[in-house]
Amino acid sequence: MKDFDDIFKQRLEGYEMKLPDTDRDAFLNRQATRERFARRRRTYLSIAVGLPAVAAIVMALVFTISLFSKKADVPVNNTQTLVGQEQVNPAQGNEGIAEDDADILDCTDGVVEYVTLDLDGDDDWGKPVESAQKSQAPGEEDVYMVVEESPEFSGGTNALMGYLRDNMVIPDSCRENNIQGRVLVTFIVEKDGSITKPVVVKSVNHLLDAEALRLVSAMPKWKPGRQNGQAQRVKFTIPINFRLDYYKNRTKATATESAVEDIMASTKDKTF
């Protein structure tokens, strides 16, 4: 027996088979891509750990402020008029952000503090809160940046991610040239939940931008955002990640098929 095994052992141990010439580059590319993703994962991880910490501090601050403001004697109906008028004219943009603490103190009691939430929680966590502002009568042009009840993709954030994943088509030329990245798209969720004015605010490549716009425009209707129970137009931003996952290119189907065939074939015979 030993001798017979040795025929195979001696000849096959350390035997080399010729690989296709392109294989080396394919391997090195794959490893390079992996290292890139690993780096990015580390970055995301530190953000994921860091941001909640920052958010917790902000919330503690807000809590402290509200404790103090309890002592401040603010007439209740005064605040009520403020709630519901909280809106930001698009032209004013983010200028409302830098309100003095003093202002917040004046009108905090009963006023909800809002924190804008980015979908994957990247940049906007814990940013200062826009305090209530008086503004003009609401018209067609008014778009809220922040509302009491944020608009929502029907089914929630996970469903949105699922929608993006399932419907994303990465153009072949991007695949070939290894173009990938994160496109930020803002749009307005109308009162009826439809999506209008999608705009790319952070671009990667014109093809990916176009695909991002297509994805956003094709979304099913959202649940509109509400302020005081009334549907309002709300501006929303979502990040769309285009990733060229190596495994997607591989023909997994064939491997599974052959495995199934194997089992089919083997069940015909007796089994141990």
């Binding site: 294989d23 080396r24 391997f27 490893q31």
Partner: peptide
């Protein structure tokens, strides 16, 4: 990258044959 290329050059075809086996 260069070292990875060298690793590949030295071992890939042997490990490939092993996997094929």
């Amino acid at each position: 990258r260069e070292a990875q290329g060298e690793l590949y050059a030295q071992y890939a075809s042997r490990l490939y044959a092993l996997c094929y086996r």
